[in-house]
Design a protein around this nucleic acid. Structure first.
Length: 788
DNA sequence: GGCTAAAGGCTTTTT
DNA sequence: GCCTTTAGCC
């Protein structure tokens, strides 16, 4: 027991040993958060708490897997025996979404959710888009006026707030909201018909089930008496409801421990709400609050930079960030000419670090958007540096893999119309658009799945005999794999990977890509065949692990009387396989064992650490992102994102900013990120962007002394003139926040914020074109003194 | 019905 | 720049 506590700081120890009652741990970046949670679980078990009564929730599978490994390691050591294994039997460490999927499957039957069967499919973003799109079409609306992406976002947002279609419709006041409500309702119908739920439903339906169904609620509360939640700052309302309902009544002082850092909240766009941290103390007034402030990860100069940056956030509780790691280099900022130059600089830096003995796996590149990875990749590849991109979902998003998976999903859930439409004529088998529309019409008229209609295809009017025969062959093919749904008989595949193999072969997918590869000779078509083969081996791997799970009770949330008694083993394995694919996250692909440089988005970087970090693309419009400048809150979230990136670095940090960047085929002049300026003298700046721009290089130098830290009103005040440069006609002072301005192209607008010194920028909300960031010096803005 | 080529549109971040 | 949709041909 003393082993578990001896190397902890006093506050860490307090967090580990405060096992009873509600506990809020405010853990600064690098303060040993994961360590505290894993120690706490191990400590509880050492204290005699049964492992099956402990539940820890995370946001990614990788975090969950790591947490489980570390607890095992703490309790069992290297060589473990059968008897040791029992000490952690039944311990629940899952992502929110995985827990919800299991609870819903287990309790679908008694949850009172209409039409939801335990074998439901989980729709990912692409499936959602397809479904929403077809609903919009069915309602005779145009996707021109009702862009699928924004409708989907609106629905998703509503679900995160636990608003179902009916509630949403009731609160819809304007025309647009009413139309979205109609689409929402249609989308829900489509999901129910397909026996499917989307990502947001996982949370929404679980929250609702726990709230309304006392039986389920009590079963869960009886099962878990210790609840722990990681990255609490990124929980949304639905997750808050799930967590607090699982925990129990506040009056009973339940053992719920949440760990988070408001400065690392980067998912507000997904409905995450920092106020959940505040709400926690409201809901559990007896909560003990522990602050972990000491950083054990980064050197002092890196921490200083991070602290300086995050202090610009007004909406935050200031808390000290400190380290006892003295020494270390100041972070570098490199201004480069374009994205190619940028990636070369990073490659050269990595190579020199490698020569100094730093292993590749200790290096990482972070960027705001995935699109930035491509150029970086090219440079690493030509530079001969091994790298991995943290995109766990990328493989499953490939066309050929999606096709194969769609076949499998129809096998697992014959009602899945989205998948059926995807595969019905892929590869081409003579069931064209006309036939498809006929079948879809009959299906929606009769409210039954398309595959059902296809079984009675003779009854569908207006099809050519050829189409009828093709449909019959298609149905027979599916039935051949499933033994007509019984999964019995000699002709039915006996294992998961055999099923996958047969699907790829008998569906004609393999032949389809083979012939494409031979006619086109493109390597991409050969890649597709490789990927299909890869899918088979991934199924094989899953199978082996599934069989090897020594403790099924650890995998099942409630093993006693699950609904799986009469489910054929192959079918339940297939469903588990598909579910594991549906719930992979990009960050899951990070594997430090690989010995390669890691490339990832800033979002995926949360929770990780690297010896040397490069953050690229520190430019206005990219970081902060242009789509996130509607409000000061958005800008603060972007700043937190930069903060998360900076605090991942243990000893070396480089930030790059390109003057020109080609985005979507267009080369644009970029403005260095306002964050670079905010970092002030905590970073060393070197301008390597070349001579061509010497004439305006004055605007690229940042002050050697910092302006006073942001005051609460600083966002709405014009920035002070810091550099002693002569005031120009475009000086910030001429455009106070709130004033009305005219731009030669964009027309009339209102200034929402102004930042900066020598090249001051203003965010202006234009009536015609929305919010734009403009450099005052160049923008030729005119102030309009309107009478109103 | 199936294929190709051209035009159009659109991109933050993710479980 | 890439992906999706559409028009036009076989």
């Amino acid at each position: 027991m003393s082993d578990l506590l001896s190397d902890l700081t006093p506050p860490q120890r307090q967090a580990v040993t405060t096992t009873e009652g509600p506990l809020l741990v405010l853990a600064a970046a690098g303060s040993g958060k994961t360590r505290v949670i894993t120690r706490r679980i191990a400590y509880l078990i050492e204290m005699g708490v049964p492992p099956w009564s402990i539940c820890a929730l995370t946001f990614t599978n990788k975090a969950a897997g790591e947490m489980r490994d570390r607890v095992e390691h703490l309790l069992l050591g290297e060589q473990r025996t059968e008897r040791d294994e029992r000490r952690i039997r039944g311990l629940t460490v899952l992502t929110f979404h995985a827990l919800c999927a299991r609870l819903l499957r287990r309790f679908a039957a008694i949850s009172g959710l209409p039409g939801l069967k335990p074998d439901f499919a989980i729709y990912d973003a692409a499936d959602q888009t397809t479904a929403v799109k077809s609903v919009i079409n069915d309602l005779n609306l145009s996707t021109k006026n009702w862009p699928v992406a924004s409708v989907r976002a609106a629905i998703s947002h509503a679900k995160n707030e636990l608003k179902d279609a009916t509630t949403y419709a009731a609160s819809a006041s304007d025309f647009a909201a009413k139309q979205v409500a109609r689409i929402y309702a249609g989308y829900e119908q489509a999901l129910r018909r397909a026996n499917a739920i989307d990502f947001d439903d996982l949370l929404l339906l679980t929250a609702r089930m726990l709230r309304t169904n006392a039986e389920v609620r009590n079963l869960c509360r009886d099962r878990w008496s210790y609840l722990m939640i990681d990255e609490y700052q990124d929980t949304n309302h639905a997750q808050f409801v799930i967590a607090s309902t699982l925990a129990g009544e506040p009056s009973e002082k339940p053992n719920i421990c949440v760990v988070g850092d408001a400065d690392q909240a980067i998912y507000s766009w997904r409905g995450a709400d920092i106020s959940n941290i505040l709400e926690f103390e409201e809901r559990f007034p007896d909560a003990v609050v522990i602050t972990l402030g000491e950083n054990f990860r980064s050197t002092a100069p890196i921490l200083k930079a991070a602290d300086t940056l995050i202090k610009h956030n007004v909406r935050r509780k200031d808390k000290p960030l400190f380290t006892s790691r003295a020494g270390g280099q100041r972070p570098r900022v490199i201004l480069c000419s374009n994205e190619r130059h940028e990636s070369e600089l990073v490659v050269n830096w990595f190579r020199s670090l490698s020569q100094e003995g730093l292993p590749w796996r200790e290096m990482a590149v972070f960027y705001r958007t995935n699109a930035l990875s491509r150029v970086m990749e090219d440079a690493l590849r030509t530079g001969g540096i091994p790298y991995t991109i943290a995109r766990g979902t990328a493989f499953y998003e490939r066309e050929e893999v999606k096709h194969a998976l769609a076949y499998l999903r129809v096998v697992a859930n014959p009602a899945d119309d989205v998948c059926l439409e995807r595969i019905i004529n892929t590869p081409a088998r003579g069931i064209g658009k006309t036939s498809l529309v006929r079948i879809a019409d009959v299906a929606s008229a009769s409210g039954c799945p398309m595959l059902e209609v296809m079984r009675r295809i003779e009854a569908v009017a207006g099809l050519t005999p050829r189409a009828v025969a093709a449909v019959q062959r298609f149905v027979a093919m599916i039935d051949g794999w499933t033994g007509a749904g019984a999964f019995l008989g000699a002709d039915v595949p006996s294992s998961l990977h055999e099923l996958v193999e047969r699907v790829i072969c008998e569906s004609g997918l393999e032949k389809h890509y083979e012939s494409q590869a031979s006619t086109s000779g493109l390597s991409s078509d050969a890649d597709r065949l490789d990927n299909l083969a890869e899918l088979v081996s991934s199924a094989k791997d899953f199978e082996d692990e599934f069989d090897a799970v020594s403790d099924p009770a650890a995998e099942m949330v409630f093993s006693d009387d699950g609904p799986s008694v009469d489910t054929p083993p192959l079918l339940s394995m297939l469903r588990a396989y598909l579910e594991s694919i549906a719930l992979v996250a990009d960050a899951d692909a990070v594997d430090p064992e690989q010995g390669t440089v890691t490339l990832m988005t800033l979002h995926a970087a949360k929770g990780l650490e690297f010896g040397a970090v490069a953050i690229i693309g520190l430019e206005q419009g990219l970081l902060p992102h242009s789509r996130a400048n509607e409000s000061p809150d958005d800008l603060e979230e972007e700043r937190r994102l930069a903060f998360v990136g900076i605090t991942r670095a243990m000893s070396q940090l480089t930030l790059t900013s390109a003057r020109y960047r080609t985005i979507r085929g267009l080369t644009e002049r970029m403005i260095p990120s306002v964050f670079l300026e905010e970092l002030g003298p905590t970073v060393n700046i070197s301008d390597q962007s070349g001579d061509a721009f010497e004439q305006d290089s004055g605007s690229w130098r940042w002050p050697t002394t910092r302006a006073s830290p942001a005051s609460p009103s600083s966002l709405s005040d014009p920035a002070p003139q810091r550099f002693g440069s002569p005031p120009t006609s475009g000086a910030a002072a001429d455009f106070p926040v709130g004033c009305t301005v005219r731009h030669p192209q964009f027309g009339l607008g209102q200034v929402i914020s102004v930042q900066g010194g020598s090249n001051a920028r203003a965010q202006v909300k234009f009536r015609q074109v929305g919010v734009k960031t403009l450099v005052l010096e160049f923008a030729r803005l005119k102030r309009v003194h309107d009478a109103t």
